[in-house]
Design a protein around this nucleic acid. Sequence first.
RNA 1: GGUCUCUUGGCCGAGUGGCUAGGCAGUGGUCUGCAAAACCACCCACGGCGGUUCGAAUCCGCCAGAGACCUCCA
Length: 488
Amino acid sequence: MSTYKANLAIYNSLTGQKEKFTPLHDGFVGLYVCGPTVYSNVHLGNCRTFISFDVIYRYLTYLGYKVRYVRNITDVGHLVDDADQGEDKIAKKARLEKLEPMEIVQSYTVDFHKVLNQFNNIPPNIEPTATGHIIEQIEMVKAILDKGFAYESNGSVYFDVEKYNESHPYGELSGRKIEDLLSNTRDLDGQNEKRAPLDFALWKNASDEHLMKWPSPWGIGFPGWHLECSAMSTKYLGKQFDIHGGGMDLKFPHHECEIAQGTSANGESPVRYWMHGNMLTLNGKKMSKSTGNSILPEELFSGDNDFMEKAFDPMVVRFFMMQAHYRSTLDFTSEALLAAEKGYNKLMEALATLEKLEAKESSSVDVSSLVNSFYEAMSDDFNAPILVANLFEAVKFINSVKDNKATISKNDLALLQKEMNGFVTSVLGISAQQESSNDKLSPVMDLVLDLRQEARINKDWGTSDKIRDGLAAAGIVVKDGKDGSSWK
RNA sequence: GGUCUCUUGGCCGAGUGGCUAGGCAGUGGUCUGCAAAACCACCCACGGCGGUUCGAAUCCGCCAGAGACCUCCA
């Protein structure tokens, strides 16, 4: 399917247009995605971004690219709100909970991995941490200082935005003009150390009570808020690489600063294709930890939350997300999840049916163009919802074949089985729900259904229904089909 | 306040100038002892007002509503 590899189009946030994707090195893709700050549990909105990029990573791989996927863990470096004087966010939490900073980081990193694993995300190839790359960050600060785009002030180092803007367009990614930004600045910590309000910290001096700090040429301190991604992406993917992704809310200032840092340190714009996933909304508003408008994956899987009627399987949630484009906001409601659950079940049923289909002489439907439609959807800026729609076209066809209303040839059947499974399982990353199957239960159920079948043959509906109702009470659903009964 | 985005049928969501996705719900049907499930068919919407065009959900303008960013945030 090399034509689809050749025709892959990606919406580039930098240019605001869909562009034909051409990797820097033929056959290889460098992909960097901004990871989480591990000072709390990841909420569902965070997960959406990582799931979106998981699908992007999966499709690139499916097309045959060798992808190096790097996603960082931010375990230091972000400022907290105005309540504390520029104290490190993770250090603050540590004091509150009387724990070591790295203890916090460890526990939330483990949680993060667990949750993404439940969503069936593939781990990145490299998952670097900010604290593990202090040296690289210091080196980068030095490089920016050497190039004259930063200055030292009171043990801190700041990026000189106005200086940079003289030769490079600061604000090109977010569509901002430096004049507009200047007229809208707030009073923040460290303002007096800066020459200009727009300047941002590359290295920040640390006070005595600060817990996470390292020695540097400028004194004891910690790295600036945007530096880690620049340092680590450069280290593992090069001065310039193919795709950088992250949530929409990171566009400004975070990614804007990355462009400025990378460009001034390395002499070239770091990223060729910028990709931004959109937000997940709950009750029509952005899901956000700080406003309380958020839901944890665990709460969704267990049903223990105030927003949803029932519990939802991670795979159902993932499928639900696949029905919306990654660049659109997606509203999370109980009703929508319920709908997705049924659609998911229908798709999985069809996948099972596909394995049992019998081939005939010829196909009554153009299977290869059906399969091509899968590739076309995903090659058009990873349009998963179109893919899902096309997959349901295939579902309709599969069921028709099952009902002998359509036919499929041997070759087409093999093709459809390969690609249908490929797109559902490998690309979308959707698998069957983890059945709580019990080796001992299975023969017992066979026996029970056998007894019930006997009762049915004898038209003993009382017994038959008693068994069915009893099993239902135990959470087991019995379905009577043509070829006997099944349960789950 | 500044910058930007969005507004699609009962619900969720694709779609950028004519051929008008898909899922769920609903209606009808097949199947079935009944039920559930499953399957099939049907259901043709684009915030309001103007404009451009032979033709607009799709382009332009105005109005209304919603949201995002501007501050840590996926």
